[in-house]
């Protein structure tokens, strides 16, 4: 039996091949977060490189989803949340008091764990985001572009005005990705996007992630280590609110430096 070592809260993150400042789209610096008195994130610093997929891995409750939701300020919806530190996006601190969370979420889209299309037609689902801002361009073209981007167009082009809820789980999740793309964000956050899907649907989402990274920066939380290995360029391992180690995915999976990372990767806990 392996005894899990306690990790000091002031643990210095082990970094390999760090992301250069110029490459970084989003960089989190010395970020801590509390729910009431419970500290969920301890002084996390990490940069996410442009047009790369970064996977956040770690055991349940390690704070990876909290970290992800901090990037587009979804945590603001939870009352009693308090943060310290900065999240820089294009040289702007997203937690600057002058920044409205609503504008943050227009630039940084999100896909959730369970497919959550609105109970509206497929078209209306994709058009929802653009309409919020009174989109003036060609909405039909934007919807088509977004659905093509999410590799769903061919399946739904004849049923655009049927309910989004009538699609299969995997199609619904791709619809949610198309919906996120329609607001034309730079960054797409994915919170365990395939945990509710079967292996075939999962496979298609993974292919899609590999494809969309040409245009977007993707941050993905996953429980599935094979998935992290397949889709991500960089991986960050978290444990109990602390960022233990981050680096290129190959490096993390084949030659982890920190003992805790190695144990997690090899399945000794988590």
């Amino acid at each position: 039996m392996v005894v899990i070592q306690a990790l000091p809260k002031d643990h210095e993150t082990v970094r390999t091949a760090t992301v250069e400042m110029e490459e970084a789209v989003v960089s989190i610096e010395n970020f801590s977060l509390w729910y009431d008195l419970f500290q969920a994130l301890h002084n996390v610093s990490i940069a996410f490189a442009r047009n790369q997929v970064t996977a956040l891995i770690g055991a349940s409750g390690c704070g990876k989803s909290t970290l992800l939701r901090s990037v587009n300020r979804m945590n603001d919806l939870v009352p009693s949340v308090r943060v310290e530190g900065t999240v820089m996006y294009e040289h702007v601190n997203l937690y600057d008091p002058a920044i409205d969370p609503v504008e943050v979420r227009r630039r940084i889209g999100m896909v959730f764990q369970k497919p959550n299309p609105f109970p509206k037609s497929i078209y209306e689902n994709v058009a929802f985001g653009p309409r919020l801002n009174g989109y003036r361009g060609d909405l039909d073209a934007l919807v088509e572009r977004s659905l093509r981007g999410a590799a769903l167009w061919d399946e739904v082009k004849d049923i655009l005005h049927q309910s989004g809820l009538a699609l299969s789980g995997g199609q619904q999740q791709r619809l949610c990705i198309a919906r996120a793309m329609a607001t034309e964000p730079d960054v797409i956050l994915m919170d365990e996007p395939t945990s509710a899907l079967d292996p075939i649907a999962t496979n298609r989402i993974e292919e899609l992630i590999n494809k969309i990274k040409e245009d977007y920066t993707v941050i993905i939380v996953t429980h599935n280590m094979q998935q992290a290995g397949r889709v991500s360029d960089r991986t960050a391992f978290m444990h109990l609110g602390v960022l233990v180690e981050e680096g290129p995915t190959d490096q993390i999976f084949t030659n982890p430096i920190h003992l805790m990372t190695e144990r997690y990767i090899t399945g000794h806990f988590g």
């Binding site: 587009n72 979804m74 919806l77 609503v102 504008e103 979420r105 227009r106 889209g109 999100m110 959730f112 369970k114 959550n116 299309p117 609105f118 109970p119 929802f128 985001g129 919020l132 801002n133 949610c176 919906r179 996120a180 607001t183």
Partner: peptide, 19 residues
Amino acid sequence: SLREASYGLGATKWQTVSR
């Protein structure tokens, strides 16, 4: 989850409530 989806797309509170 529907509220989250709406907020996640950049909807304001009132837009989420009304739409």
